[in-house]
Amino acid sequence: MPILGLGLHVIVAILCAVHVWRTNQERSWLFVLFFFPLFGSIIYALAVIAPEMSRSRGGRRVVRSVRHSLDPGRELREAQAGFEHSATIANRIRLADALQGAGRHADAIAAYGEALQGVHRDDPDIQVKLARAQLDSGDAPAARALLEALIARQPDFKSPAGHLIYARALAACDERAKAREEFDALIGHFAGIEARVRYVGILESWGEQPAARALVEDSMRHIKHMPAGSRRLNDEWIRQLKHAATRLATPA
């Protein structure tokens, strides 16, 4: 076992050394890595790799995911502390986002509503977030009405997230024809596969298993052509798509 452990330490050190070489880090790191393979790799990961990850979109997502797994309430605590320290609009929105992420949709709705004041009363991005909280709280008609009013006031505003929320709200209101139209438009333009996976679930709830199965098959082909980075960003939706593929594999 000690030999195996030492081998793993050396392998990790080699991987870190490859990172040093490819990213043009100081060559002194190679000395640290190979003279102290275990502690050197840990120090390098903390000093170089972790900050590098935090600057990339995918890296930030990984860091957030790990932090959430280790301490699910951390973001909400920090958002509450930030807002108590300084009640700015930015901090209020961060708090609303954290409440939404924690599943406290009613509190999130109240916080977003409070953010829609003064010069921000017509802010379309805040309204989209409010509509999402309303939809997730079970109030699809309110989300639909809010987004339709936003579209009427600001017809040039484009929001893929808002478009998806609107399509989901229509489906929840049993406006099937309109929901189909919105989802058909979304699938061709929405980045990622969330829209596809949500539509699969909606088609299943309507009892349209053949249509859901066809969309799953098309989506499985679609993800094969996605760049690796995009697949990583969509890993949870890809898992859900694979579960749907299993569910729908055999016609009912």
Rank of each mutant, 00 (worst) to 15 (best):
residue 130 L to K: 05
residue 96 A to E: 03
residue 194 E to C: 01
residue 54 S to I: 08
residue 147 L to E: 10
residue 187 I to A: 06
residue 124 P to Q: 05
residue 204 E to T: 15
residue 192 G to A: 11
residue 97 D to Q: 08
residue 238 I to V: 07
residue 232 R to I: 05
residue 98 A to M: 06
residue 249 A to M: 04
residue 34 F to V: 09
residue 172 A to P: 09
residue 87 A to W: 00
residue 130 L to N: 06
residue 206 W to H: 13
residue 198 R to H: 13
residue 47 A to G: 00
residue 244 A to T: 05
residue 118 G to C: 08
residue 69 S to H: 08
residue 54 S to H: 07
residue 198 R to I: 11
residue 149 A to S: 14
residue 206 W to E: 14
residue 28 S to G: 06
residue 21 W to R: 12
residue 108 A to S: 12
residue 228 A to V: 13
residue 90 A to R: 11
residue 219 S to P: 09
residue 13 A to M: 01
residue 90 A to C: 00
residue 226 M to S: 11
residue 114 E to L: 13
residue 249 A to N: 06
residue 196 R to N: 15
residue 165 I to A: 12
residue 154 Q to W: 03
residue 181 E to Y: 03
residue 76 L to T: 00
residue 58 G to H: 02
residue 116 L to M: 07
residue 196 R to Q: 15
residue 145 A to R: 09
residue 152 A to I: 02
residue 44 Y to A: 08
residue 206 W to L: 13
residue 26 E to T: 12
residue 236 E to F: 12
residue 139 D to C: 04
residue 88 T to S: 14
residue 175 E to C: 15
residue 142 A to Q: 13
residue 163 H to E: 13
residue 41 S to N: 09
residue 125 D to A: 11
residue 189 H to E: 15
residue 47 A to Y: 06
residue 129 K to C: 05
residue 200 V to F: 04
residue 195 A to H: 09
residue 55 R to S: 07
residue 29 W to Q: 08
residue 137 S to I: 04
residue 227 P to W: 02
residue 184 D to Q: 14
residue 122 D to T: 15
residue 176 R to Y: 05
residue 185 A to V: 02
residue 153 R to T: 04
residue 182 E to I: 02
residue 182 E to F: 07
residue 147 L to V: 01
residue 70 L to Q: 02
residue 51 P to F: 01
residue 197 V to Q: 07
residue 168 R to N: 12
residue 234 N to F: 02
residue 36 F to E: 10
residue 5 G to Y: 02
residue 16 C to F: 04
residue 10 V to W: 08
residue 119 V to P: 14
residue 12 V to N: 14
residue 99 L to Y: 04
residue 208 E to P: 10
residue 227 P to I: 02
residue 18 V to E: 02
residue 40 G to C: 08
residue 173 C to M: 10
residue 27 R to F: 10
residue 39 F to N: 10
residue 44 Y to E: 05
residue 73 G to T: 01
residue 103 G to S: 06
residue 71 D to H: 07
residue 74 R to P: 00
residue 28 S to C: 01
residue 100 Q to S: 12
residue 150 L to Y: 04
residue 138 G to N: 10
residue 141 P to V: 03
residue 252 A to G: 15
residue 89 I to K: 11
residue 247 R to E: 12
residue 68 H to Y: 05
residue 54 S to C: 05
residue 148 E to I: 03
residue 144 R to G: 00
residue 10 V to L: 14
residue 110 A to E: 15
residue 42 I to F: 08
residue 29 W to I: 02
residue 235 D to H: 13
residue 216 V to E: 03
residue 30 L to M: 11
residue 91 N to L: 00
residue 46 L to E: 11
residue 1 M to K: 10
residue 194 E to I: 02
residue 73 G to I: 01
residue 66 V to D: 00
residue 36 F to S: 15
residue 88 T to I: 01
residue 112 Y to G: 08
residue 172 A to E: 12
residue 56 S to A: 03
residue 210 P to S: 09
residue 187 I to S: 08
residue 43 I to H: 10
residue 63 V to W: 00
residue 186 L to T: 14
residue 39 F to L: 15
residue 222 H to S: 13
residue 239 R to C: 06
residue 194 E to S: 11
residue 252 A to E: 10
residue 89 I to T: 09
residue 70 L to F: 04
